[in-house]
């Protein structure tokens, strides 16, 4: 996780950061899953599912932006 952060901080280009962010989201999803296991509560798992569904959009919109910027 820290490695992701370092990538994020260093950049150097925008796609780097975006990818880092995306990876970060994945890590968050994973950590939530673990968390939900430790507390034995299913409710937390739903959060992970939701997050996994929308994480896609974040990356997509950044891609969209980069796309547009290059035009």
């Amino acid at each position: 996780m820290l490695l992701v952060i370092i990538r994020f901080l260093k950049g150097p280009t925008l796609p780097d950061r975006v990818t880092a962010f995306d990876l970060f989201t994945t890590l968050v999803i994973a950590s939530i899953a673990i968390f939900s296991l430790t507390w034995e509560n299913v409710n937390f798992l739903d959060v992970a599912v939701v997050l996994s569904l929308i994480a896609f959009l974040g990356a997509l919109s950044f891609a969209y932006y980069i796309f547009k910027r290059k035009d």
Binding site: V42, N43, D46, V47, V50, L53, L57, L60
Partner: peptide
Amino acid sequence: NAAGGGFIGGLLASIGLFT
């Protein structure tokens, strides 16, 4: 009865539409 609700559901659906 569990985590969720109209707001969350609506947001999710609309994000889907938006995507």
